[in-house]
Computed example of a mutant assay.
Amino acid sequence: MTTPTVVLVHGAFAESASWNGVVADLKRRGYPVIAIANPLRGLREDAAYLRSLLDSLTGPIVIAGHSYGGSVLSEAADGVPGVKALVYIASFHLEVGESTGELAAKFPGGELGPALNPVPFPGGTDLYIQQDEFRRVFAGDVAPEVAELMAATQRPITASALEDKATKAAWKTIPSWTMITLQDLNIPAEAMRYMAKRAGSTTVEIDASHAVTVSHPNAVADLIDTAARATTS
């Protein structure tokens, strides 16, 4: 196998360290790994930031995105010849013209909205998950002490980023794999199934919360490894 570089893209209310367990597993398997700091400022801006990194890499690339990170990678990876596989972890596969917020609300079961705390800043509004609600809605299967740290270190996303409409859909031309989290209160499992089916994505389902990269890092690494072996051997 030609070993690809694995690029990991976190979503809203998380940060690069949310991939730590996945990174450790992938490194043990011999993969070079980069977990980027997703700006969470707007779909166009975030995709341009990721694209600049992708354009700097040589050789094959596998990209995995968690949550809103899937929206970003679908926009950024379109037309990048080195990208061989897309891996959506409790994530979004947007069609052109759709927004992250629209897909999150397409099916019942999401409980994120009432738990959000809007914080105005010059030029926009940031969204945080209320810390006393963080574990329940985001990280239900994560140890309480870890979830407490995650709540305190969460990265906010601008409200407008969730409303931005996709202009590209890399999953139409690049093979994809999807992990569907059955205890997810951010993106209903039915929404993930809908998006994965539409994309022709290879799917696995796991009994986990939205914070699956923290609670089940080895299962996440397994799926990324599967995608890499299927597309770069």
Results as ranks from 00 to 15, higher is better:
T3Y: 10
T5E: 07
V6Q: 00
V6L: 00
V7E: 01
V9T: 08
G11F: 11
A14R: 06
S18A: 14
S18Y: 13
W19K: 03
N20W: 11
V22D: 02
V23Y: 06
A24S: 14
D25N: 14
G30C: 07
A37V: 03
G42K: 00
R44Y: 06
A47M: 04
S52R: 15
L53Y: 07
L54T: 04
G59A: 03
P60L: 08
V62F: 11
A64L: 05
G65F: 02
Y68M: 13
G70I: 06
V72T: 01
L73Y: 05
E75F: 05
G79W: 01
G79C: 04
V80Y: 02
V83R: 08
K84V: 07
V87M: 01
H93G: 13
E95V: 00
E98S: 09
G110Q: 08
E111H: 14
F121C: 02
F121S: 05
G123S: 02
G123P: 03
G124A: 10
T125N: 02
L127I: 11
Q130I: 10
Q131E: 14
E133A: 13
F134L: 07
V137D: 07
G140K: 04
D141C: 04
D141N: 05
A143Y: 05
R155W: 06
T158R: 12
D164I: 05
D164S: 14
D164L: 03
A166K: 02
A170W: 01
A170R: 01
T173S: 15
T178Y: 10
I180G: 04
N186I: 10
I187P: 02
P188S: 09
A191P: 05
A191K: 03
R193T: 00
R193P: 00
M195A: 06
T202E: 09
V204I: 11
E205Q: 02
I206C: 04
D207V: 13
D207S: 15
S209R: 07
V214L: 04
H216G: 06
N218A: 13
A219V: 12
A219Y: 14
I224G: 08
T226V: 10
T231G: 02
